[in-house]
C-alpha cells in the first residue's frame, strides 16, 4: 500500500427524479480516495447509495456535480472516446453472477469480450491461450470454456465474472456486493480468490458490501455510508475496535454472534 491516490471522488452528488419536482438524492456530496494497492470497503445498509457511488466511479452513470479523478486526471467530464482508455484500467465484478453473464454466450466468448473490444489478442490461438490462462487463474476447469453460464453454479459463474474483470489487467477492481449472492462456504472461496488475485496482480480494490464480517476479512480501510453520505472512514482494525460513529456501532452490533461471543 502506497500513499499514491489511484482514484478519488470530490464532492460528488447524484440524484434521481421522482417526478413532480421531487428528487431522491442517492449520493450526497461524497468525497473519498482510494490509494494504490489497498482494498477499501464501502459498507452500509441497502439503498444507502453504495452501488450508485460505484457506478459513478466507473463512469457508468454521470454525476450531477463533483469531480472524479483517476491518477489525477479528471474523468468526470470525459465521454465516449476520451473515456475509453480509462475503461480498460478499471473493471467491475457484479453482484448477481447469474445476470452479469450473457446467457446466450459461451464462457469463452464472455471472457473474450474485453479482449475483443481492445483487440488485445490478434490471432485465435493467442486468444485461446489467454482465456485458458484466465480460467486457470480463477481456478476453473479448462473444459468449461465451451459451457454456457446456465451450466455453472453460482460460485463458478462469479469466477467467470472475475476472469472477465481481470482479462485486461486493470489497476482497479470494483466489487459491487460480489459475494452477497453466494452461500457462505462459496463466499469464503471467492474472497480468498480475490485476495490472492489482488496480491498477484497488484490490484487496488473497492469492495462494496453490507456484510461487516466479510469486510473485516478483506479490507484495509472501511468507509461507512448511510443515506448517501459517508459517515466514517477508518482502518479496518481501528473501526472494529473503536467505532467512532454511532451508526458504525449500530452496524457492528447487528453482526449475528454464536452464543454470547461478541465479534472481536
Amino acid at each position: 500500500m502506497s500513499e499514491e491516490i489511484l482514484i478519488s471522488a470530490r464532492n460528488i452528488t447524484k440524484s434521481y427524479s421522482l417526478g413532480r419536482k421531487k428528487r431522491h438524492i442517492a449520493v450526497n456530496d461524497v468525497s473519498l480516495e482510494l490509494y494504490k494497492g489497498e482494498t477499501l470497503a464501502l459498507v452500509g445498509e441497502s439503498g444507502c447509495g453504495k452501488s450508485t457511488l460505484a457506478r459513478l466511479l466507473m463512469r457508468l452513470i454521470k454525476a450531477d456535480s463533483g469531480r472524479i479523478c483517476f491518477e489525477g486526471t479528471d474523468i468526470s467530464a470525459l465521454s465516449g472516446r476520451a473515456l475509453k482508455p480509462y475503461r480498460k484500467r478499471m473493471q467491475m465484478i457484479f453482484q448477481d453472477p447469474a445476470s452479469s453473464l450473457d446467457p446466450r454466450l459461451r464462457i469463452r466468448d464472455i471472457i473474450a469480450e474485453p479482449l475483443r473490444v481492445w483487440r488485445v489478442c490478434p490471432d485465435k490461438t493467442e486468444m485461446e491461450r489467454r482465456i485458458l490462462d484466465l480460467l486457470d487463474m480463477v481456478e476453473l476447469k479448462e473444459s468449461m470454456i465451451d459451457w454456457y453460464p446456465r451450466e455453472l453454479s453460482g460460485g463458478q459463474k462469479q469466477r467467470v465474472g472475475i476472469a472477465r474483470a481481470i482479462a485486461l489487467d486493470p489497476e482497479l477492481i470494483i466489487c459491487d456486493e460480489s459475494v452477497s449472492a453466494l452461500d457462505v462456504s462459496v463466499q469464503a472461496q471467492i474472497l480468498n480468490l480475490l485476495k490472492r488475485l489482488k496480491k498477484e496482480l497488484g490490484l487496488s480494490c473497492l469492495f462494496i458490501s453490507h456484510d461487516l464480517s466479510v469486510v473485516n476479512f478483506i479490507a484495509d480501510r472501511v468507509c461507512v455510508m448511510r443515506g448517501g453520505v459517508i459517515c466514517e472512514t477508518a482502518d479496518t482494525e481501528t473501526l472494529y475496535a473503536h467505532p467512532g460513529h454511532e451508526y458504525t456501532r449500530y452496524l457492528l452490533s447487528s453482526i449475528p454472534a454464536i452464543g454470547d461471543d461478541p465479534v472481536s
Binding site: 466507473m58 467491475m92 448477481d96 452479469s100 469480450e113 473490444v117 472477465r164
Partner: peptide, 22 residues
C-alpha cells in the same frame, strides 16, 4: 439495463458491439 450489458460497457464496448453481441 441488464448487468451483462453494463459489464460490456464498462469493458469499453460501444453501442454497435453491445447490439450485435448482446
Amino acid at each position: 439495463e441488464s448487468e451483462f450489458v453494463e459489464a460490456s460497457v464498462s469493458a469499453g464496448a460501444g453501442g454497435l458491439h453491445v447490439m450485435i453481441w448482446h
